[in-house]
Design a protein around this nucleic acid. Structure first.
Lengths: 232, 232
DNA sequence: GATTGTCGGATTGCCGACAATTTGACAATC
DNA sequence: GATTGTCAAATTGTCGGCAATCCGACAATC
């Protein structure tokens, strides 16, 4: 690591930042399941920091809607009910449409190549453990290319919240998905904002339908629950 | 206040929540100007709480992009530069367009009346101190009517951040604005999602242009600055 | 006189301790 | 035996204090 990077790190990273990052990682990876309870003392001991640090980190995650605090009762990883899941999809569709509209007019040849490379890797990948992160990265990069960092921030917030959905199918692959990726790329190539936006929106809308299907087939809708996990 | 409300309050409100609320109010009201420094000790003494409480509240506001923390140097009310201002407007335009699309198909007669009442009051109001909060309330209520609480949450986050813009013109009135409100209402009355969405988007886009104009006339673009205000 | 070194007050980063609340178990009462 | 009262362990809410860092002032050096 470059000396300048370390300098920046020491200068900017506080313990609460690191704890927040770690808990976010645990939520994203599924290590911490939706609905599970977070014990302050246990967390602070595991990460070798004081409870104050953990509490600060949790405040941030609460604002991001990833955990919820009940006064005097503790913190819980949030559960996303079907209604909210649909709302998140609607929002993501809106933002992705925006991204397509914004990006199309000024995307470069190099960027088109980069996106195509993502798509090729996605088509070659198999198993959700390979496709899932690649798919996330593809869409993240596409939004990043718009140059609108505020949009990117909101987009990531939505994706983070979508990680709370039980099934990872919210961003899974499949041949239908691959075709849609190609359609997005084709639209961007023409430089048409409207067509690009619509290709993006269609992809998200179809993704929502695929999730509903797979959920309907495999499991019942998740119900709200107060039940906490064992504390061992 | 109802006994049940007080019960709910005691049950849910923590000190950090109250502090966060208060600082948010101060930022919105302009009591705390963008760029100004926040002294932990001073805040904690003024609000009669410990520094830990203030720090927790600030973590939340930081996640909401309303303040920024510099390690060992303090917290500052964020400044929104022109690039970010434009991005916020683009985002708001996107979300408002979404709101129009979502609301149009199922808006009720009572809701149309309510919105019209807002518009009439806006047309009768004068001075930014009257029009500003009314205008905010009108748009907030409209988004709320969509029933998409997740959308409403993101929308409010954007509006909060827009309060950091120096000139309140980001949501000011004017006869042009009034006409656009009428156009939105008319579109919603027809129940057409596309037309309603476009009316909403047009209103925000024009609002952005109005802000740019007034800023170009009156002041130079705000520059990034490290300078802190006096500490008295 | 401009640069560099040193120091002290002010402020933040972090921690451990105490108080308040919750929660489940068990006893008491009808 | 179902309800109510009581208690203790576990956990969270809040606080004040110590250490580390920053920052401006002043002194020293060239």
């Amino acid at each position: 690591m470059e000396i300048f990077d370390r300098f920046q790190l020491l200068r900017s990273q506080t313990l609460p930042d690191l704890v927040e990052e770690e808990v976010l990682r645990m939520i994203k990876s599924g290590e911490l399941a939706a609905g599970s309870r977070l014990n302050e003392l246990e967390l602070s001991e595991r990460l070798k920091v004081s409870r104050s640090i953990v509490r600060e980190a949790m405040r941030s995650l609460e604002q991001a809607h990833l955990v919820r605090q009940e006064k005097n009762r503790g913190m819980f990883v949030r559960e996303v009910l079907p209604k909210e899941a649909e709302e998140l999809y609607q929002l993501r569709a809106g933002l992705d449409e925006m991204a397509g509209r914004l990006l199309a007019p000024h995307i470069t040849a190099a960027e088109l190549d980069e996106l195509e490379s993502f798509i090729r890797r996605l088509e070659g990948a198999n198993g959700i453990d390979e496709t899932f992160p690649l798919n996330i990265a593809f869409h993240d990069r596409l939004v990043e290319m718009t140059g609108n960092t505020t949009l990117l921030g909101f987009y990531r917030q939505i994706i983070n919240r979508m990680h709370l959905l039980r099934r990872r199918s919210f961003s899974a692959g499949g041949s239908a998905s691959h075709a849609e990726h190609r359609a997005i790329l084709a639209a961007l190539r023409t430089g048409d904002p409207i067509a690009s936006g619509e290709a993006m929106r269609a992809h998200v809308d179809h993704g929502f339908e695929r999730m509903r299907q797979s959920r309907a087939e495999i499991e019942t809708m998740p119900q709200p629950t107060r039940k906490t996990r064992g504390r061992g």
